[in-house]
């Protein structure tokens, strides 16, 4: 008789020690493209323990900000430090990112997880059981051998999230991971994100869904037109946003 006990999420996704790379500090950060300044952040510190939600209308610079923080884009000016140090390769691989449209490798579902564990140097013997635990954790247990790209939209994004969590990142960036998913699929993604956050991973997530920001956020970073308009604990942001732009956004007015 096999042991049917559910895997403890901590055992498979996050043996994360205290996050070494916080606070994330930004100084004079600017990003330009095609002669236009898309993001201009003179100063910003992200240190809160819980999830930080980056809110704002389209084109506010939310995606650019997380890509800069994760090191996918090079800033035109300014610098980012993690716990006072310039981010090096070692710090970068303690991070992971989930994109709006999941980029799954042309391999099996399990193959996608094996891949990340292998490039992170997890020994072969250990990989197999880690992959099994991860699949169970993400409710994909029966689908390990299936081609990753034959999954449904919700399952694809769940796999992308599991793959990001596979190496127990200290900081997890998410760029509107649920924007094209239905409520049920969104809920399962949110549960996984909350689980990771509780296990100690610092979550920094872009969304334009106010409900989602309210459900997950500990801290809100509100961006508009390439600037950080305000950074407030979620409990304070939603009843009374400080900036006019955020008030308009929360009240459901269109920002143009």
């Amino acid at each position: 008789m096999r042991d049917l006990r559910l895997p403890d999420p901590r055992s498979c996704i996050a043996a994360t020690p205290a996050v070494r790379d916080l606070p994330i500090a930004v100084q004079g950060l600017r990003f330009e493209s095609g002669g236009k300044t898309l993001l201009d952040v003179p100063e910003l510190t992200i240190d809160a323990a819980g999830p930080t939600m980056i809110l704002g209308p389209n084109g506010a610079g939310k995606s650019v900000l997380v890509r800069l923080l994760h090191g996918l884009l090079e800033p035109a000016a300014g610098q980012i430090t993690l716990a006072g140090r310039r981010p090096d390769r070692a710090a970068r691989i303690r991070q992971a990112m989930v994109f709006q449209r999941p980029v799954l490798l042309r391999r099996s579902v399990a193959g996608n997880l094996h891949y990340v564990l292998r490039i992170r140097g997890v020994p072969r013997a250990e990989r197999r059981s880690r992959v099994r635990d991860l699949l169970a954790h993400g409710d994909l247990a029966g689908k390990g051998h299936q081609p990753a790209r034959s999954l449904s939209g919700g399952e694809e994004q769940r796999l992308a999230l599991l793959r990001a969590l596979a190496a127990s990142p200290e900081i997890l960036f998410l760029d509107e991971p649920t924007s094209s998913l239905d409520p049920a699929a969104t809920q399962r993604i949110e549960a996984l994100i909350l689980g990771a956050a509780r296990a100690g991973t610092k979550v920094i997530m872009v969304t334009h869904d106010l409900g989602q920001a309210r459900r997950l956020g500990q801290e809100i970073l509100f961006l508009n037109a390439g600037r950080v308009e305000e950074q407030t604990p979620a409990a304070r942001f939603f009843p009374r946003p400080a900036s006019a732009a955020a008030r308009a956004f929360v009240d459901g007015q269109l920002l143009v």
Binding site: L72, R89, Q95, A96, I119
Partner: peptide
């Protein structure tokens, strides 16, 4: 399609060649 994700994994440009060859 892959470059952003592979960079996020921490692979350099040349380091991503084996992955791209296998997936292609």
């Amino acid at each position: 399609e892959y470059s952003e994700q592979l960079r996020s994994f921490g692979l350099s440009r040349l380091g991503s060649v084996p992955t791209l060859l296998w997936d292609g």
